[in-house]
Structure formats: C-alpha cells, structure tokens
Design a protein around this nucleic acid. Structure first.
Lengths: 128, 128
DNA sequence: TCAATATTTAAGAATTGACTTATATAAGTA
DNA sequence: TACTTATATAAGTCAATTCTTAAATATTGA
C-alpha cells in the first residue's frame, strides 16, 4: 500500500493532524475524531490500525492504554513522491522572483507552439 | 475535494509521474496507462478529468488532441499539508547529525513516562 | 460531405473500502 | 474473583469509486 493511499482519507489525515500536536491515547482519539466525523470507536480503531501498519504512527503501551504518536518514515515516503514535482513550483517561484527583480512586463517569451512548462529537459535544479 | 484524496489513487499518481516528464496527449496517456493497469481509454479519461478539475493538470488544445501537463497549484496544496509534519523528520536528521558529531551512545535520555518525540511544544523550527 | 481519428460524457455493473454491531482480549479495581 | 475500562478484531452491510460499454462531440482529411 502506497503512503499516499493511506493519506487519501480525511479521517486518517485528521488523526495525524491531532497527533502532530503530540502523543494521544487511542481512546482520546476515538473521542475527538469520533465526534468530529460522527463515527464509532471501532471505526477510529480501524484507521489507527492502517496508520500503524503502514508506518505513520508509533505506539507505546501504557497499562491498558495505547499511546499513539507520529512516526516520520511513511510521511517521508509521501514527501519523497511529491519531490519529483518540486521543480514545477520552484520554477514558478523563480519566475516570479525574476519578474519582480527586473520589473514587470519584460523578457516574456510567448511563442505558443512547442512550449512546455515542466522541468522535463534538464530544467530541474535538484539534487535528486 | 482535498488534494491528497486525488493522489490516493495509483492510476492518477502514475499519470502525474508520466506528465512529470513533459506534456502528453490524452491518447498517448490512455495507451501507456491503459496498458500498465489494464484499463480502458474512457477509464483513463475519467482520471484525467479528476486531475484537470482538481487543478493537478493544465490542458492545451492542439487540433483534435488535448495535451496535458502538470500544473503546480494542487500539488503544492498536498505539499503544504505535509509541511506540518516536516519537524518530525528534520528532528530525526538533526538527532542523527548530533549523534554522529558527539560520538555514539552519549547523552541519550530514556525516562519512559511522559516522553514524546514530536515537535509539539515549540520544538518545531519552521517558518509556518 | 463522409469516414476516420481523438476525446469526452453517460449510465449502469462491479469492486473496494469504510462503516456498524457484536464480541474478544487485556488490564486495572473493588 | 467479578466488574469496569480500554482497545482491538470479526463479520456483515452500505455507499462511494472505479470500471465497462455505448454513444456524443469535435477535428482532420479524402
């Protein structure tokens, strides 16, 4: 299962947002999330399972409670996938910066035809 | 619809990967993607619609063909959501660096109880 | 104009996945 | 030990998505 498949669910994203603030017990999450989305404790528990099994969270046992916290691994994977597109918006920002630096309405090449905007032909200035 | 909901589909992700290499006609994508996933041309077209409507692609008309290309906006939204967790892995890398710098097995606080690993209490060193 | 190509849209079938209720497991507590 | 709290798992239901086939739209070229 791809990291982005896991993040493609609003409940799971919200759980991670809450966990970004710090460790929470499964029960506390079931309360908060369950109320927000109007779903049951088992429903939240099932999402916690996915997050756990896919490496988005780390669990610590404290008596009868399970304390969940964010684990970086899987989130980094999602980030890594997005990295291949970073060139697109960096270029966009560069263009803006250049435009501002040299004053507006100057040096704007608009030849229509075989134009393309991506960093596909070596235009990407990234390590990876 | 959240940007990450759109990315929570393997076919759509693959389409974007192909587009990251540059502009492609809808038909060319239908061929490549359709073959890879064993789905029909309309199926691919429907995914292209989602990507288009949600701001992941830009379309240019060339005669009877539609040339698709990556549009940065929506991808940036996804990136922005992930940003709130950046502190977690930056910290991880910081820790690794520190560990290496001062030699291993030193200064490792392991007190169990109220410990937490996130950047939740001001530990985050990010602009946002 | 007519046929061929390129692509989208429509409608319904099939599949997936996210819930629900019920139950199991385990740890605290009286 | 029995009861309560905390959480997870199981099994089945329901709904949202993702397909399929068929047909509509638009462009190119004979």
């Amino acid at each position: 299962m791809h990291a982005l498949d896991v993040l493609g669910d609003p409940v799971r994203r919200r759980i991670l947002e809450v966990l970004a603030r710090g460790e929470h017990a499964a029960g506390a999450l079931a309360d908060v999330i369950g109320t927000e989305f109007g779903i049951s404790q088992p429903a939240v528990s099932q999402h916690l399972r996915v997050l756990r099994e896919q490496g988005f969270t780390r669990v610590r046992v404290d008596g009868a409670r399970r304390l969940y916290a964010v684990a970086p691994a899987a989130l980094q994977e999602a980030e890594a996938w997005l990295d291949q597109f970073r060139g697109f918006w960096e270029q966009r920002l560069d263009a803006l910066g250049t435009e501002l630096a040299r004053g507006q309405h100057r040096g704007r090449r608009v030849d229509g035809a075989a134009r393309s905007e991506g960093p596909q032909d070596g235009g990407q200035r990234l390590g990876a």
